[in-house]
Amino acid sequence: MRNPQLNANGELTHLLTIEGLPREILTHILDTATSFISIAERDVKKVPLLRGKSVFNLFFESSTRTRTTFEIAAKRLSADVVNLNINTSSQSKGESLLDTIDNLAAMNADMFVVRHSQSGAAHMIARHLAPHFHVINAGDGRHAHPTQGLLDAYTIRHFKKDFRGLSVAIVGDILHSRVARSLIHALNTLGTTDLRAIGPQTLMPSGVEQLGIRVYHDMSEGLRNCDVIVMLRLQNERMRGPLLPSAQEFFKTFGLTPEKLALAKPDAIVMHPGPMNRGVEIDSSVADGPQAVILQQVTFGIAVRMAVMSIVASH
């Protein structure tokens, strides 16, 4: 089966998932992003790479940060941007997802940035559209959030220079996390060999080891000598119920406190995809501390999204 995000020449025409992409493509995206970083520091923060192109931000699931950074990225590339927040419940009563897509395609869109609560939605849209359209997955269910995985990888490369020889721990709700899945694929492809998932059994998807990550149920074991700690967001509705007894108990066992952070290497960086729950997965003193690079992630996110958009649009 051909990777549906590559064209016959093996070039990236959609970004749907990091899984299955060769290292060269990932490195090319990261290198391209580096060249875009300086644009943000100019007076005129624009390059004409997507001039005359229409980018539709299609969000079936609410988001502020991701949608905004995609919008900024597209505008810095000189594209015209249309933002659509489509409430899935009202959609289910009327127009089907593919009808919506057909209508927008008829408005001569060039690129769709799609977020959807269902895993595989971006794949389905990409399969449905004619080949000259481009689809960027901005998060589908629990499946993938490839631009987040790439900006995480970018942040790690920025601070640690190389992926090889690093120990990276991903902590918290792996089960529901598309961020974790995308980062696991990215780091495995880029050469990190010591990947660790830390959390209770209830938040570990079955067979996750086969994605290339070791599972730990204990922070003191899992964080030892880590170079990078990625804290995942815990959704409100999952804080109490069959998966976890309470937010307090989660913080006590898996929340990142200064004491637990001290188990990692002294120069370890702390990342979080946002939005953070202070006092649930991360202590404020860590989130605001010198090792946190959470705001840099946001800045890098724009450059990475510019890189992805410019690369897929060129194929």
């Binding site: 899984e19 895993s119 595989g120 589908d140 269910g141 629990r142 499946h143 993938a144 598309r178 899945r181 998807p205 079955s206 067979g207 996750v208 086969q210 994605l211």
Partner: peptide
Amino acid sequence: HDGEVATRLGLPGIP
């Protein structure tokens, strides 16, 4: 099926 494939695809599993 609750297993590696469902985990990769992010699909809720039936064990």
